[in-house]
């Protein structure tokens, strides 16, 4: 399944401090193109902080990461990284709740569409075509993630599980190479989690690498090709699920030993 493909994301020595608190210290990871990579660890281990650095919401205090062929010092603006091909979802769902579900996904198409002020006002042929293409693509993505709802429904009126799926659709609309999901199964029941698992596998099979933060150990173990474990801002283990499961440091971290 994971043929020795090229490294998509190479994180080296990332540091992040909040005042006196060290949230991440010397974290290094390699993520291969085409794999599903899990990031686990107890609450406060620094998983979301790492996500925020990868997507430009936080600035790293040290270290760098190589994505594709470009090196980042962890100080780029979010939209630059989104353009580069890192898309994400949020732990505490951050949809545009008063926009329709179609519009939410269409916003994801923003950076690879071009209509400016003039096109918006005149609606010349190219602008109309682009708008149609975006709407079409957004509608496809909604079906792809399994949301069968009226397009003009407001995002906030979706059920919780659907909102998580909508976030995934919105992120996919940016045409990412790497899809970073922050606890996508949180608050889902077993059936929903199951279909989420299928969805993530489909996404991977379509060539998008998936980076996953998740607390549902069963989901992570069953889904991920490789897993890294963070504890107190440090990577304490990395490997295929079976290795990680039996790693004494991991067991200690989870049992608080």
């Amino acid at each position: 399944m994971t043929s020795p493909a090229a490294t998509l994301l190479k994180i080296s020595g990332i540091e992040k401090r909040f005042g006196g608190l060290t949230a991440l210290s010397d974290v290094s990871l390699h993520i291969q193109a085409g794999e599903i990579y899990g990031l686990i660890g107890p609450n406060g281990a620094g998983k979301t902080t790492l996500f925020n650095i990868l997507t430009g919401l936080y600035q790293a205090d040290g270290g760098k990461f190589l994505f594709g062929d470009i090196e980042y010092a962890g100080r780029s603006k979010p939209h630059i990284l989104a353009k580069a091909g890192i898309a994400r979802t949020f732990q505490n769902i951050r949809l545009f709740s008063n926009m329709t579900i179609l519009e939410n996904v269409m916003v994801g198409c923003h950076h690879h569409s071009h209509t400016g002020i003039w096109g918006a006002i005149t609606r010349h042929k190219n602008a109309r075509n682009e708008e149609q293409q975006i709407a079409h693509r957004a509608a496809e993505l909604l079906i792809y993630v399994g949301i069968n709802r009226a397009h003009h429904m407001l995002a906030k009126n979706l059920s919780y599980g659907e909102q998580r799926r909508l976030e995934i659709a919105r992120a996919l609309a940016t045409n990412p190479k790497l899809l970073a999901l922050d606890e996508p199964a949180a608050g889902m029941n077993a059936t929903e989690t199951d279909s989420l698992k299928t969805l993530l596998q489909t996404i991977r099979n379509h060539g998008v690498t998936v980076l996953l933060i998740e607390h549902d150990v069963k989901l992570v173990m069953g889904l991920c090709d490789r897993i890294a474990v963070l504890d107190y801002g440090k990577k304490i283990a990395e490997g295929v699920p079976s290795e990680v499961r039996n790693n004494p440091a991991v067991i200690a971290a989870y049992l608080g030993g």
Binding site: T55, G56, L57, K77, P78, H79, A82, K83, A87, R88, F90, R94, L95, F96, S97, N98, M99, E103, V107, G108, H110, H111, H112, R170, A171, A173, T174
Partner: peptide
């Protein structure tokens, strides 16, 4: 509209 709703999410989506 996206910025008005959630600026952080909007920037993370490439705006």
């Amino acid at each position: 509209a996206a910025i008005r709703e959630d600026e952080i999410a909007a920037s993370a989506m490439g705006i």
